[in-house]
Amino acid sequence: MNFIQFLSSSAIPIVIAIIVIYGLLEKNKVYDTFVEGAKEGMEIVVKLFPTLLGLFIAIGALRSSGVLDCIIQFISPITNVLHIPSEIMPLAILRPISGSASTAVATDIMNNFGVDSKIGLIASTIMGSTETTFYTIAIYTSCVGIKKIRFVLACALLGDLVGMLISVVIWGFLS
């Protein structure tokens, strides 16, 4: 566990160092490139904010009105059998549908149950290991005018499901 923690916390500095050294060796103007990239990052954040705001309010309302607890209670018999914490279910359902909505739900979960709690860690792992499947399929097919996607959705969702189950199982072992 300590070793994993050491590796996790040194992974990022090591990756940064390797990339910067690479840039230097190839005489890239690393600082200029960095600033340019950071500027693009700024655009992402600015674009993300309005959606995040809208969804935070909607999900906050769901939680404070008691709807979310109601849903969780309703599905808990199923999730208990599978040993999945039912608090995770709203995230699992929204994850393939909307990136910003699932970011908002995951943040809400981490805020409520604690970032470093088991549920917070599972939510983080699900967010890191899965994608907004529906959105991805929609833009990739619509750009070339494709209407029939055959088995693509089923295979992609199967992958998401496995990613989520593994996230739950891993933290069942680690904590």
Partner: peptide, 25 residues
């Protein structure tokens, strides 16, 4: 306390999801 603690679990979950989706396809 440790924001990067999730990196290895994320790798595990991603690889499993990736292999499943690719094999299914």
């Amino acid at each position: 306390n440790n924001p990067t603690q999730i990196i290895f679990p994320v790798w595990g979950a991603t690889i499993a999801a990736f292999i499943t989706a690719v094999l299914a396809t």
